[in-house]
């Protein structure tokens, strides 16, 4: 019976997303990541299409977060971490020396596992990115960006009367939506989400999931999740990682019903991980 529920949610997720023609947004070729001498990711090839929700699943330590963090070069901030291979965003190599990593991260935003609002007011949290990149000419414009971002994140009605209160005073789920609002305030093209719901309760999780589905109309979303039902509910395609390898990537429906690799089947049926 649970299988039926899953299938039903798969069908609806597919229905919501299959009216886009796939357009290549990012592509990775033979991406390897080394922490010091040890290789954490053994040559990943993956294409990401515009306006899709792509989920990464796999057991802990399989390299899915590591790969995600390659996509906006957040791995650069880790000492001793080295990335080889080629990752393109709209046909440009993002590891090219001439590319400014700061601009890359403005185009490829990120939402983290634990909500991490800055110890500033709600308004300042959202205005932070637009100010950095000079997206607003005037205070009125900035106000508008803040309102638009919060509205898109479904948070406006809850916080509009207390924009000057600290963002750290919100509940966990609100904080995570604040972080999503903060990410979309700089108008990124791709949003990377690293287990965004793992610290949230089921109700907050449902809200964030709904938000992700809505956001996929305008953004490309790559999401790492430990929750396979979540992957099934919100993603169009799913990639399964195991021991630093990308085992297979396919339509979510296919991964969860007729996976082509036995390891994938073992994982989704709960035989390991």
């Amino acid at each position: 019976m649970e299988n039926d529920v899953m299938r039903a949610s798969l069908a609806s997720a597919e229905a919501a997303q299959n009216n886009h023609t796939p357009e290549l947004k990012m592509s990775a070729r033979d991406v390897r990541v080394f922490y010091g001498e040890s290789e954490a990711l053994h040559g990943v090839d993956l294409d990401i299409y515009a306006n899709e929700v792509l989920a990464f699943i796999g057991p802990s330590g399989c390299g899915k977060s590591t790969f995600l963090r390659c996509l906006n070069r957040m791995n650069d901030t880790i000492d001793g971490c080295r990335v080889t291979g080629r990752i393109e965003l709209d046909g440009e190599d993002i590891y090219d020396r001439r590319l400014d990593v700061v601009l890359l991260r403005a185009r490829v935003g990120m939402v983290f596992q634990k909500p991490n609002p800055f110890p500033k007011s709600i308004y300042e949290n959202i205005a932070y990115g637009p100010r950095l990149h000079g997206l607003a000419e005037s205070r009125a414009e900035l106000d508008e960006i803040v309102q638009r971002s919060l509205t898109r994140a479904g948070l406006w009605d809850e916080v509009k009367d207390r924009l000057d209160q600290p963002g750290t005073g919100l509940s966990g789920g609100q904080q995570q939506r604040l972080c999503i609002a903060r990410a979309i305030a700089v108008s990124p093209e791709v949003i990377l989400m690293d287990e965004p719901c793992s610290a949230l309760d089921p109700i907050a999780t449902a809200k964030v999931e709904q938000l992700i589905t809505e956001l996929s109309e305008s953004y490309t979303i790559v999401i790492v999740t430990h929750n396979m039902q979540q992957a099934a509910r919100i993603s169009k395609r799913t990639a399964f990682f195991h021991l630093g390898n990308l085992v297979e990537v396919d339509e979510t429906t296919k991964i969860f019903t007729t996976p082509s690799d036995s390891r994938t089947e073992d994982y989704i049926t709960g035989r390991f991980g």
Binding site: N72, M74, T77, V102, L103, L104, R105, A106, G109, M110, F112, K114, N116, P117, F118, P119, K120, Y128, G129, L132, H133, C179, R182, A183, V186
Partner: peptide, 27 residues
């Protein structure tokens, strides 16, 4: 100051010194 703060700021496209001035030092 938690690394999550720095990551949040860097992830929005702030440079290292912007992150230090606007997030780390205020925190």
């Amino acid at each position: 100051v938690p690394k999550a703060m720095r990551d949040g700021s860097l992830g929005l496209g702030a440079t290292k010194s912007e992150t230090i001035r606007k997030v780390v030092l205020p925190a």
